[in-house]
Structures are given as C-alpha cells and as structure tokens.
C-alpha cells in the first residue's frame, strides 16, 4: 500500500498530527502518516506499557517516521508514591521508572480477598459512597464478570454514575470516565485512562505474569490509579506462584 501511495505522489495535507499510545500501533502506520498524512508528527508512546506482543518500540517508531531521538518524560505526575511502587514492581522495561512528583497520601495499595461478586460490589459501592471521586473497576472479561458487576453496582448506587465500557458497543464517547462515578472496563479499555481509585478484579487471571507482555499489562493497569489501588482475588485462593509474583506487604497491604 505504501509503495502504491508513493507512486501516486500522495503527499501530506495536514500540518501536524499527534498520536497517543503509539506503542500499540504497527510500525507501518508511522511510515504511512509521516509520508502521506501530516507534515509534522508528534508521537506519545511507552513500549513498557504495550499490550500486544507485536508492540512497536520507540526505536522502530523513530525509524519508521524518520523522527528525532525521543524526549524521555522523566516525571510521573499521576500516581502517589505508594501506587507507583506497586506498578513499578511489575515494570519490566529498559527505561527507568519515572520520578514520582506527587506527595504521599499515607495509604498503601491493598490486596483483598473477595468472597463473591456481591462482596465485591459492596466494597466498590461503599468506597464510592464514602470516598467519592472517579472509580475504575478492571475485569478480565466484561462478558463473564463485568456485566453482572455493573448491574449490581447500578442497584447499589442509584444516585451515582455507573457505566460499563464495552469495546463492541463503542460507547467510549458517551462514557465520561473522568467524572465522579464508577466505570467498569476490561484490560484493553483501561489503557490511557486514569481514576482516583482503581480496583483490579480477578487477579488470578492476571498473575503470575508468564511473559513480558503480561508484566507490561499489569504495570499499565496499576499505574491507572491516582490515589488508591486495590488488587482483588477470590473466592479461590491465589496460587503459590501468584503469591510469589506479588510485591511484599510493605508495598501491598494484605487484608
């Protein structure tokens, strides 16, 4: 396709294009946009947070789009040091973790064993009622857990915004995840979002991480939380290997 465009003399007609989450786009995309779409290109990418195995590295983006060396953003303005410590536990990238600029709030992320989905719904709705703010709930799969949890949360929080973001319904634009309320979403949808408090459910499905891609996903998910992070498992216990994959109690409080 690129050869074809080149032969047809298709030249960029936009002055500037900004691309976010560039690590999850194929490298050919960057060659295409830089040659045929926009005269100037700015890409934001962190290949340490790539979700797919076919991630595109910073080096590949640079070569494909003929860009200068990347400017490394060295500061983390989102997470508290406590949340950042858990996220960094799963960090597997080449670049050092960014320096946390926010102050501590004195609250460690917590590991919680849930008895059943009602217990989880009570936990999330109590948090919403008491602490307020925008809350994210990450499930492994919307079909299995997300839809039911969403229904239960709506019952418990009739006055509050409770949404579920579903990839196939394309309701991204109608869901204001930054507004106060609860958003249920899956691993892929949580990319690029941020929440005051984040509950990662079905922990057994996410750890132990068997490869770099899974580690990057955990790193990405944990770093979505601004102030409070909860890793929730149960009713089945975690495997021994999963326990070993978790940070120690000085970083992740056990409940």
């Amino acid at each position: 396709m690129l050869d074809h465009l080149q032969q047809a003399w298709v030249v960029p007609d936009s002055s500037h294009l900004v691309v976010d989450e560039g690590q999850d786009l194929p490298k050919g995309f960057f060659a295409y946009v830089s040659h045929h779409v926009a005269r100037a290109l700015t890409v934001f990418a962190d290949d340490d947070q790539a979700l797919s195995r076919q991630r595109t590295t910073l080096e590949q983006i640079k070569r494909a789009a003929n860009l200068d060396d990347p400017i490394i953003l060295k500061r983390n303005h989102r997470n508290t040091p406590e949340v950042a410590a858990v996220a960094e536990h799963f960090h597997s990238g080449r670049l050092p973790a960014a320096e946390v600029t926010r102050g501590s709030n004195g609250e460690l992320p917590r590991l919680i064993r849930s008895r059943n989905i009602d217990y989880t719904a009570a936990l999330v709705s109590n948090w919403r009622q008491t602490r307020g703010g925008a809350i994210g709930v990450v499930v492994y799969s919307n079909q299995q857990t997300g839809v039911e949890l969403h229904r239960k949360l709506k019952e418990r929080l009739p006055e509050s915004r409770v949404d579920i973001y579903q990839h196939d319904e394309k309701n991204e634009d109608s869901t204001n995840v930054l507004a106060d309320g609860v958003t249920v979403l899956n691993k892929k949808s949580v990319k690029g979002q941020e929440f005051d408090a984040l509950f990662i459910l079905e922990l057994r499905r996410f750890i132990p991480c068997t490869n770099d891609s899974e580690r990057r996903a955990m790193y990405m998910m944990c770093s979505r939380a601004r102030d409070n992070l909860f890793l929730v498992y149960g009713p089945e216990n975690l495997s021994d290997r999963a326990w070993q994959a978790l940070p120690g109690p000085e970083i992740l409080e056990r409940q």
Binding site: G103, S104, N105, G106, E107, L108
Partner: peptide, 9 residues
C-alpha cells in the same frame, strides 16, 4: 504541611 499520614493513622 504534609499529607503523608493516612486517614486511619
């Protein structure tokens, strides 16, 4: 002056 003390503490 500092926020490092958690609410439970």
């Amino acid at each position: 002056d500092k926020n490092s003390t958690g609410p439970e503490e």
